[in-house]
Structure formats: structure tokens, C-alpha cells
Amino acid sequence: MIIALNGEPRTITGPTLADLLEETGQSRAKVATAVNEVFVPATLRAETYLNPQDRVEIVAPRQGG
């Protein structure tokens, strides 16, 4: 299925947000996630199923000043 990941089209194989994080190598990273502009907490990622054309944002925290 094709989704938009951080604004770019991406073909994914897994049905859930947790699967997407695994596919992108970020399953153990401290990141914030949103699907269609709705925040998804880490505890719900395995239960959050993705649909074609969903807009997913994965954001890593940054340090700086």
C-alpha cells in the first residue's frame, strides 16, 4: 500500500504503524508519531492500522538552542 511518510510517497508492507516503524528501522527509537495529523502514542502504534493514502509523520526529538 502507498502512504505519505513525512510528505513523501512510500510503499509499505505491514498494516500497522508499529510495522511501519519496524520497516524504517525506527521501532526502538524515541519518536513522536501522527496519522492524518492525529497524534498516536507509542502504546497504540501496534493497534493503529494504516490505510492507502494515509499521511504519517514520524518526528525525532532534537536538541539545540
Rank of each mutant, 00 (worst) to 15 (best):
M1D: 08
M1L: 07
M1I: 11
M1T: 06
I2W: 03
I3R: 01
I3H: 02
I3T: 04
A4M: 08
A4P: 00
L5D: 10
N6H: 06
G7P: 11
E8L: 12
E8C: 05
E8V: 09
P9L: 03
R10E: 07
R10P: 10
T11N: 06
I12M: 02
T13K: 08
T13E: 02
T13I: 12
G14D: 05
G14Y: 07
P15W: 00
P15H: 03
P15Y: 01
P15Q: 02
A18N: 08
D19P: 09
L20W: 13
L20T: 13
E22A: 15
E22P: 05
E22M: 07
E22W: 04
E23S: 10
E23P: 15
T24W: 03
Q26Y: 04
Q26L: 15
Q26E: 13
S27T: 14
R28Y: 08
R28S: 13
A29D: 12
A29T: 09
A29H: 13
A29C: 11
A29V: 11
K30V: 15
K30A: 15
A32L: 15
A32R: 09
T33G: 02
T33W: 06
V35T: 02
V35W: 09
N36D: 14
N36F: 10
V38F: 04
V38W: 02
V38R: 08
V40E: 04
A42H: 11
T43N: 07
T43K: 07
L44R: 14
A46P: 09
A46Y: 09
E47G: 11
E47P: 07
Y49G: 10
Y49E: 15
Y49S: 07
L50G: 03
L50W: 11
N51I: 12
N51L: 13
N51M: 13
P52T: 06
P52M: 06
Q53N: 15
D54M: 06
R55Y: 04
V56A: 01
E57S: 12
E57H: 03
I58H: 08
I58Y: 04
V59D: 00
V59Y: 00
A60M: 13
A60D: 00
P61G: 00
P61R: 01
Q63R: 01
Q63P: 05
Q63F: 07
Q63L: 09
G64M: 01
G64L: 03
G65Y: 03
